[in-house]
Design a protein around this nucleic acid. Sequence first.
DNA 1: TAGGCCATCTGGTCCT
DNA 2: AGGACCAGATGGCCTA
Length: 178
Amino acid sequence: MDLALSDTDTSSGFSARSDDENSRSPCATSPVMKKRRGRADGGPPVKRNRRVKANDRERNRMHSLNDALEILREVLPACPEETKMTKIETLRFAHNYIWALSETLRNADLEAERSFHRAEAPINPGSSSEAWSCSSSSSSSSSSSSSPVYCASSPGSPENYFQPQDAMFLRAFVPPVY
DNA sequence: TAGGCCATCTGGTCCT
DNA sequence: AGGACCAGATGGCCTA
């Protein structure tokens, strides 16, 4: 236990520590000082010790959160660029991806149903797998439930989570890779 | 240089 | 009492 407690210097005033976490966090490229707040003396030793342990737990908690986010990134369709999705992009994209997959399933069901009745009714051309087709703007009308990945305007659709300014916006046009 | 993203610290709150 | 969770604050890094 207390693996990071060795860095109790964390608590010692303004010395921003960090060899430890900076080395493990990909973003922190150099071991520079992180911010420090609160009493410089750290307060009463007992409280201080508790704080240090709480900090350590919080750090681990955030690390595990980031790990989960990383696993999520790996599950999502690969993107051509090597740029790493930001956290918010990852979440939005995941939301869209799930939405699009369920839309694909729904369309497949509809298609199956149509082909079942095909003997009696004329064929209705087009219409399948539109969830992944990103025709520029008309797509909002393609399905009743809502719009494809990038489309704006439809209740319950991902547009609330998916902002065009995100780099993810472009990735949403890429069909899923299995 | 401003803005975005991120890691960390911190104190508060809730739960066991 | 102590841990988990959360949100605010702070400062570093990177890019346009």
